[in-house]
Design a protein around this nucleic acid. Sequence first.
DNA 1: CTCTTGTTGCTAGCGCTGCTAGAAACGCCG
DNA 2: CGGCGTTTCTAGCAGCGCTAGCAACAAGAG
Lengths: 201, 201
Amino acid sequence: MLALLEFLPMRIPRRRERERADRERLIVRAAQELAETEGWDAVTTRRLAAEIEYSQPVLYSHFKGKDAIMAAVAVQGCAELAAELRQARASVSGTRERLAAVAGTYTSFARRRPALYDAIFTRLVDLPSATEEAPAPHREAFGELLAAVQPVTAEGEDTGLLTETFWAGLHGLATLTRTGRLPPEAHEGRLALLITHLMRG
Amino acid sequence: MLALLEFLPMRIPRRRERERADRERLIVRAAQELAETEGWDAVTTRRLAAEIEYSQPVLYSHFKGKDAIMAAVAVQGCAELAAELRQARASVSGTRERLAAVAGTYTSFARRRPALYDAIFTRLVDLPSATEEAPAPHREAFGELLAAVQPVTAEGEDTGLLTETFWAGLHGLATLTRTGRLPPEAHEGRLALLITHLMRG
DNA sequence: CTCTTGTTGCTAGCGCTGCTAGAAACGCCG
DNA sequence: CGGCGTTTCTAGCAGCGCTAGCAACAAGAG
């Protein structure tokens, strides 16, 4: 009865909901493209509004502010990273090979897509990860590293902790190299050292 | 003769030069204090000008822009880091103890003085290090790490490269922990793992 | 078909940023 | 004391993130 009465009127709100969700995806996609092509400095609310062909305040009806838009880009970008890591790990066999594949993919991602990497790991201080549980893509990406590290865990060592340390090494190499603090030529050598010492020689 | 003629008139410019240098130090010190007490977001050119009790444009007669001021703070801050590292390394003996002391001091510096650490290692992309030789304090700080790592270099390994990798690990731990991406409780455990694996078990 | 109602998106504007042009004030010299 | 060169300030530009308040629209009622 009640359901029947509501059925027809319900279709309209549904469509509008869908359109709203579409526009939200449009915003995130535009922000990501703009950031990746011209850097985050070029991602201003005005520019972004022009890009999606809506006015500025529309952005604020979807996101609390610019940081929230960056966070959305970061979460989506992290899903891409996780996918690349998964593929890298699956594409080779052998403990060291897998570690090398995952490590190479990770730092290559940071080099190829610096804006995205920055959004995920250096820019935002208040990604949900801090307060509550990290968003799914983050856990997924970390899970890929963990799976690669798991076989080299020594007795008495905690795989999670070891993976975190390995991750920190990768993150340090990625960021220090990209900002010109480490010479890029020797990057492969440093990666090899990191993996060798992770496997304890 | 010429020198005698120039002697007296020279005294005035000298004094002005000295006063200018004093004011420049004042600016850098004010910027550092403001950044360390209220964060870099609070360091605006207006606020900084008010702090040193001069008008805004005075800043631009000393530095090309805000970034140049941050760079000056970074270089000076790096000298402080280098001094702490030197003291840490000198205060203990034994290979592992020295590595632990240096590593602990490094990450502790990043935790205790986040604004300074950010200026040195994450914020500025155009520190002189990228284009020409790194500024002295940077080389000095790196030298401390290198001295601590040197004894654990294995045959066929390059100490410099190994130090860079170790540094990347420290930097990764420092930044990921400070931004809430790694839980701080397990920090010591990760540090221990890093050192253990650096010494290859 | 017209009128009312509620939502949606817009225009305009606030207070702030880094930075700079041109005027004013200062200190030095003859 | 008068003129000159430097130093420093006032005032303003363009752009930022963000928001209040109005206009235009779509949907239902008579």
